[in-house]
Amino acid sequence: MQPIVIENVHKRFGDVKALHDISFSVEQGELFGLIGPDGAGKSTLFRILATLLLADQGSAFVNGLHVVKDYKAIRRQVGYMPGRFSLYQDLTIEENLNFFATIFKTSVEENYDLIKDIYEQIAPFKGRPAGKLSGGMKQKLALCCALVHKPAVLFLDEPTTGVDPVSRKEFWEMLQRLRQKGIPILVSTPYMDEAMLCDRVALIQKGEIMQINTPGNIVKSYGKKIWAMRADNMFRLIRDLRAFEGTDSCFAFGEYLHVTLHVPVEKVQAYLTPLQHGNLVIKPAQPGIEDAFMQLMQEQNETV
């Protein structure tokens, strides 16, 4: 049985199409990423799966249970970490954890092996109110609270948003260990680089899934040749490249620009040379998930 099955789900809020014909399944033990910016519909989908919101059309199953008919049973079986920090700010780490264990009619001791790794990192501060924790520590506590009843499925809505790169890295290491324990995880993120850490991802934008595949295959399916370019004055280089008729797209990617062309690269070199850019570098580059996402976004915008 697939732990999460979503079939043709639609949801509107007034004129806003929050979700449009969403279908996918998550396999047993899979770490599945929902990758997209704010407003893509990620949280709406989580709320439908967590039985907190009704879809307009379509159906969804969690652990074989129907999200409408069997909502009570689902609530006992899933761990849900909402996007907004939703623990009790004035309760301590320890009190929050005990509270959630009690709500689910269990105890912290009973499933301690599941949270041990994560809890030990915050245990030295167990007497501190949740509201006074740093971003990274809040996320760890929230994950412990979502796991304390040993859920059959884990829903994590943007667990790393606003969290610094060190804490993000640690958080994903924890998710890898949980996956090894066999818990299927549906996790959303606006950070494209995190897609690479998932087994499969759905790229979502404006309520529609643009592509579902393994991160490796998504990168492979990116059809265009990318050139990395840089020069001393990057702003001038961007403007010059965008003014060039042979340029298809030109975006900043860290140290370099990623440029795709309608013309052979020699034409760009010929165009740029008289413009006298200092230390101009042009070299082939490998596409990443972000290149693929941006290309799919542009295709989506063209068809709408």
């Binding site: 997209g36 910016p37 704010d38 893509a40 948003t161 606003g162 606006p190 494209m192 934008q205 990057m234 702003f235 961007i238 975006f251 900043a252 972000e290 996402f293 941006m294 976004m297 542009q298």
Partner: peptide
């Protein structure tokens, strides 16, 4: 730029570059 899509994030940096210029 927290949470925005990758194209908008870069358009935002265009504004930053322009202001710095």
């Amino acid at each position: 730029t927290g949470g925005v899509d990758p194209i908008t994030r870069r358009q935002f940096w265009d504004l930053i570059y322009e202001a710095a210029d």
